[in-house]
Design a protein around this nucleic acid. Structure first.
Lengths: 202, 202
DNA sequence: CAATTGGCATACGATGCGTATGTGAATAGG
DNA sequence: CCTATTCACATACGCATCGTATGCCAATTG
């Protein structure tokens, strides 16, 4: 019987990540007491330090998990759109939709950068940008996107605009209406990447 | 002699703000000990609590000061460009340049949002966005910018892209070269706001 | 079955925070 | 000019949280 041991360990890690994710996503990283949320998982800080080194290490694990989930959702969008460009646009709007969740805003956009620094430097947490970069690269090779721009750079800039878009919608009095306005402006900005004439010809 | 009293008070406030700004901008908000940086200003936490209520209140004051300085620099750029659109673009690139400073990245883009929430909701700290919004509104009325988009929304999205642009340049191995690439991509995105044909006719 | 690993808890010291309270100097009123 | 009061700021205390050092028990290994 080799499994129970390994299973229990994995379960402990998962419980810690889940408990921390709940705490970080609601009251925030700084306000989350390690004693409190480890206790809510039926554990102590001893387990936390053993598995993740410190509070920042646990945050990294939480972020890696969320990033993975976001990447899955981004990739699920695939191939429903009539053109590759439209597909890319859909990907972006999906990203904005995900970014509407308070947990994602708090952990990925606010506390994460404050504690771990520039998100672009995070290990194991750039799946979404990677996906967008790939698509931009393809679109550029196909002649849909203007040749001058660096795909990864563009993906990063779009990411920044996306997160602002999501925050604006989420903090609005009328999210439904604001969403229309914001997404329209966002798509307009994306138009800047298109070659003049014939975006829908590919 | 009514002055010395008021002057001393103002000086105390200024010293606290300056000391906090240095601490927040270098080691970061969370790591900055109130005992330490008040002492470095020749004061104690008593003065801090008296004037600013708590650590967050002091951060708000620091942010208001930085925002004011950024707005001044943005407005100084005025009227050097041949067209109003070019003027707006220059404003954006100036914003990116300012955002290259580690102190601004740390306080305005990372710690600030984590501690005080969405920057769009900050009181007394939206001068830059306000300025950009005004220019976009004018440009739209003049027919340079496409009519559909909401100016403030667009300004916010551009702001998000700008901060990403700055972070990418600042964290690059070769900031000079990266700056060219990033600014080029950024300007390309801005093109999306222009009406087709004749951007330089106004 | 004995030895050892390691997953996790407990205990301790240190640090930083918020509040309550104290103090001395500057102002205002008579 | 003298007294009372305000108020800017310091000091003192208790509490929460963190990191580390240590201990224990179950599970694996040979």
């Amino acid at each position: 019987m080799h499994r129970p041991r390994k299973e229990m360990i994995a379960e402990t890690r998962a419980k810690l990540i889940t408990a921390a994710r709940n705490a970080f996503g609601t009251i925030g990283y700084a306000e989350a007491s390690m004693d409190d949320f480890t206790a809510s998982a039926g554990l102590t800080r001893g387990a936390l330090y053993h598995h993740f080194g410190d509070k920042k290490g646990l945050l990294q694990a939480v972020i890696a998990e969320i990033d993975g989930e976001m990447a899955v959702r981004i990739n699920e969008i695939a191939s429903k759109a009539p053109t590759r460009w439209q597909h890319f646009v859909d990907e972006c709007t999906t990203y904005i939709e995900m970014a509407l969740e308070p947990e994602i805003q708090r952990i990925m956009f606010r506390d994460g950068p404050a504690v771990l620094g520039d998100p672009a430097q995070w290990p194991n947490a750039n799946a979404c940008v990677g996906s967008m970069t790939d698509h931009l690269t393809s679109l550029q090779q196909e002649g849909v996107v203007v040749p001058g721009v660096d795909p990864e750079t563009a993906a990063r800039l779009i990411n920044g605009a996306s997160s602002q878009a999501a925050q604006r919608i989420a903090n609005s009095n009328d999210p439904e209406a604001t969403s229309k306005t914001v997404v329209a402006a966002f798509k307009q900005l994306l138009e800047g990447l298109l070659k003049k004439q014939g975006p829908q010809s590919v």
